[in-house]
Amino acid sequence: MIDAKLSGNDKLATRIYNEMVNAGISNEKMESQLGSKEKEKIKKDSVAMEAVEAYAKKDYDTYTQKLDELRKKYSQKNIESAIRSMYKAAYGEDDIETFDTISQEFWEKEEEVESSQFKTVIDAMMEAKLSGKLGEATKLYNYMVNNGLPNDKLDSAIDSREKELLKNDPLIKEGVEAFHEGDADRYVDIVEQLKNKNYYARNVTSAIESMHDKLYGEDDEDTFETITQDFWEEDEADEMVSYELLFNAFWNGSRGTYNEVWGLLNAAGKEDKSIRASMRNRCYDAYWKAEGEGNTEEMNKAAAEYQRNGGKLETLLKPPKE
């Protein structure tokens, strides 16, 4: 059956497939076997071996050329799986069953492209981006778009990969400390250092706030457009300060750093009335958290700042809804 499929004899492949389904072999097992057989053929294909060697040498132009050659014969999903398996071997790195017969169109249906099917290319693209080789990163991005991976899935994969890498950067822990203390100068400096490593600021701040939440228990249509090298530059001004940083400056820092962060929020376009409303909300939460812990000092601290930002005492004293 697999030989018939690969040789283009879809009619014969369909007949064999349906005979096997009618004999009691489920569609899932059939497709699993088809995938396994195709991967075996890919692993024996000299073009696949050349692709693995090119990837190991970081020769991504040759690598993508070899992928194009393989795609003329095999599915992208199985190519990616086989290449990763071959690379690992060389370089060290239950669904419900159905019994539906198929029509000849089964072999012609378009495969939904997922970012996991281009993991090796995404890894190469990220290495190029973080090394400052934006021309090479752009070429690899467009290669995936032109082979059916939508921009939104690819952009999401870039963000996920950056956040994963950032978790292991020691600067993130320093950023978390500065964020918790409301130390704006230190925090902004750390974000800038990580931006200089070619990470997006949005992913840096997200990684810092995510780790902060874990350490301190705080709770808080597809497109297919090619890109230019400018894609790697963030479009909007980076907002490296946040309302939470402001509250941390008040709660854990000093009045000086608190005023400094307030000024940075103003510079980022936040109006005083919005900043005051945010502080009232956070002070309200802090007040009732302290009340539950029986901490009078923190209750008084939260109440004073709540009222300083325009809040009414009677509103503060209304318990939060369950």
Results as ranks from 00 to 15, higher is better:
residue 13 A to G: 09
residue 149 L to T: 06
residue 29 K to E: 11
residue 53 E to W: 02
residue 208 I to S: 01
residue 182 G to N: 03
residue 263 G to D: 06
residue 35 G to C: 11
residue 37 K to G: 07
residue 255 R to N: 11
residue 176 V to P: 00
residue 153 K to Y: 08
residue 289 K to Q: 13
residue 140 L to T: 02
residue 27 N to H: 07
residue 99 F to E: 02
residue 114 E to S: 10
residue 272 D to M: 05
residue 138 T to S: 03
residue 266 N to W: 10
residue 43 K to I: 02
residue 117 Q to S: 09
residue 199 Y to V: 00
residue 275 I to Y: 03
residue 147 N to H: 15
residue 7 S to G: 11
residue 298 E to H: 05
residue 95 D to I: 12
residue 67 L to I: 15
residue 220 D to A: 04
residue 56 A to N: 13
residue 317 L to K: 13
residue 248 N to G: 10
residue 108 E to C: 03
residue 293 E to S: 13
residue 141 Y to T: 00
residue 5 K to Q: 13
residue 267 A to R: 03
residue 169 D to C: 01
residue 218 E to R: 15
residue 214 K to W: 12
residue 47 V to L: 10
residue 101 T to N: 11
residue 257 T to R: 08
residue 185 D to R: 13
residue 145 V to T: 05
residue 56 A to S: 11
residue 140 L to V: 00
residue 265 L to C: 06
residue 260 E to C: 01
residue 176 V to H: 04
residue 260 E to S: 12
residue 308 R to M: 06
residue 272 D to A: 07
residue 111 E to M: 09
residue 180 H to C: 01
residue 221 E to D: 11
residue 226 T to D: 08
residue 69 E to L: 11
residue 68 D to R: 14
residue 83 I to C: 06
residue 80 E to R: 09
residue 167 K to Y: 11
residue 278 S to Q: 08
residue 167 K to L: 12
